[in-house]
Structures are given as structure tokens and as C-alpha cells.
Simulated assay, not measured.
Amino acid sequence: MEISTVDYERFKIILEKQSGILLGDNKQYLVVSRLSNFIQEKGLTSMASLLDKINSIQGSVLLKEVVDRMTTNETLWFRDTYPFEYLRSHIVPEMRNTSFNLRIWCAACSTGQEPFSIAMQLEDTTINSEIIATDLSDRVLKKARIGVYQQIELNRGMPRDKLMRFFTPLDNGDWQVNSKLRNKVNFRPLNLLSTPYGVGKFDVIFCRNVLIYFSGENKTKVINGLIDCLKPGGYLFLGASESLTRDSKPLTMIRCNPGLVYKKEE
């Protein structure tokens, strides 16, 4: 499948408006690799015909499927390590003195590895916790709620001791997060471009490795929306290659050595 320059520009605008994902000028190959089979499955013949159908009255469902196919959903267990260690070693003891319930939001949670990593890290602490996990994609949320992972997925960061403690082996060789841990995470659909979010206030927010796909304007919009959802004294974790923008609302940067976390002043 080939994409004309005109159709590629049309698609870039639609994708960014719907999801915040900003494609570069030479990413046609990425669109082809992720949508060629999809276009055939839908009985369409080209990117132009797909765009025409998306723009029709019945196109909203199709658009949602297209965005789902274009979402990267790259994720690991305990990614970068330090956010989970800092959560347990510094934030939990600090919050224990001021709150009976630690509210955590995992934004852009993908297939669930990050919120389940958070839940595991909070086991054996004496603080109560509520973990909300959101994503734009219904497909990844469905997988996360079920909590079933192949061995190859678990090889990406899952410690053996936690695998044996928190997972149940299935007959087909997959592993499922046990029901106790699954019940600690509330998965919900949410588009990060749809501010204000209406999810309440949180002590800790994880929004990691998604803003790298957004334009500067949308990064600021999302970061400020997240900051509005932080309680005074709350913490915001971004990805290792992400930072606040020039127009972000002010937060205090704290070095975790390695890594950074941002704190809202009380």
C-alpha cells in the first residue's frame, strides 16, 4: 500500500486531533505497517478510501479502531525501576503521616504492566491505596482487566519472586495476575486530550512515555491537566526522556538519583 502526500497529511491531522499523537513528516512507513492489513480487513482499497469513510456519518467507530492500531503500547514491568522504589521508600512513609488512603493515577496505562507494578510495590506496606488506571484504547484496557500475559511479556522486567507470588500459571503457558492484585486496580477509558479529566485528586500520578508523541501545545495541555488533578504535596512521574514544558504550571523538581519526580507545593 502506498500513501500519497495529501492523504498522509490528512491522516496526520485526524490522528493528532483524536489522540494527540503527532506523526513526523517521513513516517508513512509506520502508517503502512500498522494499517495495511486493517484496510484490507475492512474491505477498503486505499488510505484515501479509509479517510473518506472515517469522515462519513458512520466513521466514529472506525476512527476509534484506527487510533487503536496506531497506538504504540510499548510497556515494561517496573520500567526504569526508580519511580517504584521512590514510591515505596519516600512517598509512602511521607503520606502515611497525612493520609489514610493513597490515591494513585496511572495515565496511559497500556496493557496494565505499570499499574500492576505499582500495586505489587505497595504490597506489605501499611497504607491503604486506590489505583486508577486509564487509557485511550479499549483493546489494551480489556487485556489489562483480564491480566493475562505471555511469558515473553513477563520476561520484560518481571522479577521471578514477584511472578511466583502474584501470578497464577495457566494451562497454555500464560500467566494471570491473581484476583487479589487485579482487584486493586480500577481500569477506565480516558483520552488525555479531554481536559478537565473529572477523576478527582491524587497523591501520585504516573504519566510516563506518552508525552513524547505529542506536540508542544498538547504536552502543556496534558501536563497542566494532570497538575490540576494533584493534591497539594502530590507527586508527578513523567518518562525518563520527558519533562515539564515552558508553559507548564509550576512544580518542584526532585532528584531521585537516578531519575526525577515533580512535586506540587502544599
Score class of each variant (00 low, 15 high):
V199E: 14
M164N: 15
G239R: 12
L63P: 07
K180E: 14
H90N: 13
S137T: 05
D174M: 10
K231M: 09
P169D: 10
I91L: 03
S49D: 07
S36I: 08
I13A: 13
S117C: 04
G259S: 06
E242N: 02
E242G: 00
R34H: 07
Y235Q: 09
I39S: 05
I3F: 05
L136W: 10
I104H: 11
V31T: 02
N55C: 10
V204F: 00
R145S: 12
Y262K: 12
L230I: 03
L51N: 08
L230K: 01
N172A: 05
S179L: 11
L30G: 00
Y262S: 04
F237A: 05
W175M: 12
Y8E: 02
K221H: 01
S60P: 07
V177R: 08
V199T: 11
R160T: 12
A133C: 06
T134Y: 13
L163H: 02
Y8C: 02
E130N: 12
G157K: 08
T252W: 12
V210T: 08
S248Y: 05
T5N: 10
R145T: 13
K184T: 10
S60R: 14
V185E: 03
K219S: 12
T134N: 05
R208A: 11
S89D: 14
S19R: 00
I152K: 10
S243C: 10
V148T: 06
K263F: 09
E2T: 03
